[in-house]
């Protein structure tokens, strides 16, 4: 039982990261109907920029984390303004390939700037680890869970309590209504991408101390994030978070009881199955009735 709880906690911590990846993906999708294949790279960037700032520039973690988030957000802004804005009338295939191209370029740039070695940063610290019986919750895990909790509350307030947030959420479905609230679709798209990049970057910094940062991390993290978002029902922020937790826990259980090597495949298999069998997500009806 204690082992199971420990596995569960590990899964929830990782699931929080997936949930944040899925959130970015969802926010962009709601604003523009775009599936951003570069979303995972924001997490990668958060990790490698943090590592670079701490190990190369010698910045303290408290400064390095905001720097990493800012760099990621800035890259999201550039990506939207320079590339996607100029291609928004392209067909699906072209847009998909465009974001894959951006993902490759970011990966390549990270490899050039920060090198190809995996690297570690110290935990954020400050919060002590919690020990209950033989079950322990690591300090970084608490950081991660707290961050997602605060983030969820902030996003919930933004999207359901402010006019601005509501307009953004509707920007892709009701561009005119959004425009009436003072949110041009173009502006909504930029803001969404910056938010996604910042959230991704933050998630990347949070997980850097527990799993090494590397320029190659983006693909798998991105796919796990997609899986979480799809499982939760595309476009549903709450579903994205729950989807992330679910996939994190399933992976952790698979690693603990089946075979650790196959844990990565589980999330992807779930993604494929949900896409084919329940494209509206596991909680699909809620999404439909919300519209």
């Amino acid at each position: 039982m204690e082992v199971f709880i420990q596995i569960l906690i590990t899964g929830i911590v990782v699931g929080c990261i997936y949930g944040m990846a899925a959130l970015g993906f969802t926010i962009v999708y709601n604003a523009t109907k775009l599936i951003n294949f570069a979303n995972g790279e924001f997490l990668m960037l958060g990790g490698v920029v943090l590592t670079g700032a701490v190990t190369i520039a010698g910045l303290p973690t408290g400064v390095a984390v905001p720097v990493a988030v800012a760099v990621s957000a800035a890259i999201g802004w550039v990506m939207q303004r320079v590339i996607l804005e100029n291609a928004r009338h392209s067909d699906h295939l072209t847009l998909v390939m465009l974001t894959i191209g951006v993902a490759l370029a970011l990966r390549g740039a990270a490899a050039l700037v920060f090198g190809r070695d995996i690297s570690f940063v110290p935990e954020f610290g400050f919060i002590p680890l919690v020990l209950v019986g033989n079950v322990y919750i690591p300090s970084q895990g608490i950081w991660i869970m707290l961050t997602l909790a605060v983030l969820s509350l902030a996003l919930w307030y933004l999207f359901s309590r402010t006019l601005f947030g509501k307009a953004m959420r509707a920007a892709s479905q009701e561009p005119r209504a959004a425009a009436l609230c003072g949110i041009e679709p173009k502006k909504a798209a930029v803001i969404a991408m910056i938010m996604a990049a910042a959230i991704g970057g933050l998630a990347g910094t949070l997980m850097a101390p527990i799993s090494a940062a590397s320029y190659e991390n983006g693909i798998f993290l991105g796919l796990k994030g997609f899986a979480a978002a799809v499982v939760g029902g595309l476009g549903n922020p709450l579903g994205a978070i729950l989807g992330g937790l679910l996939i994190g826990v399933i992976e952790s259980v698979t690693a603990g009881y089946v075979a650790s090597g196959f844990k990565d495949a589980i999330g992807f298999i779930i993604l494929i199955l949900v896409l084919i069998l329940r494209p509206q997500g596991l909680a699909g009806r809620a999404v439909i009735s919300r519209v």
């Binding site: 998909v96 796919l223 090597g261 196959f262 494929i272 084919i276």
Partner: peptide, 28 residues
């Protein structure tokens, strides 16, 4: 047959996931 029920970006996602699953299986 099942995966081509998807189209557009979902198909891209599905096939990307398929490739990732293959890699995991091949390495394990």
């Amino acid at each position: 047959r099942p995966i081509l029920r998807l189209s557009g970006h979902n198909l891209a996602l599905g096939t990307l996931a398929l490739g990732a699953v293959f890699f995991v299986v091949a390495s394990q």
